[in-house]
């Protein structure tokens, strides 16, 4: 009942009053021309971009093909080279031998052991070099070192 009354009130407000909003003079007369101008200018802009794109499209396609070809070639070459230079470390040798020892001769074992020993010696040499350089840089003579120890 209350709602109906308010609906009547709303109807009354609408009936008793004109549109409270208004527009600048001549707005609706000018609007179609303005919109036409806007569409023409957008079309010009669009056609300019479209024409440019149409002109540079083959160059874009060629550039893209070159880039794609370079990427593919580089990736393939990288893959092949990395496979070729992959060193098998002694641990892998050991594991492979564990699987099938019949294929390995005594010489293989000796080579691996020598290789490991060589690597160990290289590491040790590097460590020794480090200490020698330290003693030389700090100007510590043998006597002082013995005294300290």
């Amino acid at each position: 009942m209350k709602m109906k009354n308010f609906n009547k009130k709303l109807d009354k407000i609408k009936a008793n009053s004109s549109n409270p909003f208004y527009v600048p003079d001549g707005y609706f007369e000018d609007f179609p021309t303005r919109i036409q101008d806007k569409i023409i200018s957008e079309n010009k802009e669009y056609s300019w971009i479209f024409k440019l794109f149409k002109y540079v499209k083959p160059q874009f396609a060629l550039g893209f093909m070159i880039v794609a070809f370079t990427v593919i070639a580089y990736t393939t070459a990288n893959f092949i080279l990395s496979n070729r230079t992959n060193n098998i470390d002694s641990e892998l040798f050991t594991r492979t031998i564990e699987v099938d020892p019949s294929e390995f001769t005594e010489q293989h074992f000796i080579d691996i052991l020598l290789e490991d020993e060589k690597r160990f010696e290289e590491d040790k040499k590097e460590e020794t070099d480090f200490y020698i350089h330290y003693l030389v840089d700090e100007d510590i003579d043998y006597g002082t070192l013995i005294d300290e120890l």
Binding site: I13, S17, P20, F21, Y22, V23, P24
Partner: peptide
């Protein structure tokens, strides 16, 4: 400036 409604319309 483009609204000229009375109090009830406001």
């Amino acid at each position: 400036e483009y609204f000229n409604g009375d109090e009830i319309q406001r």
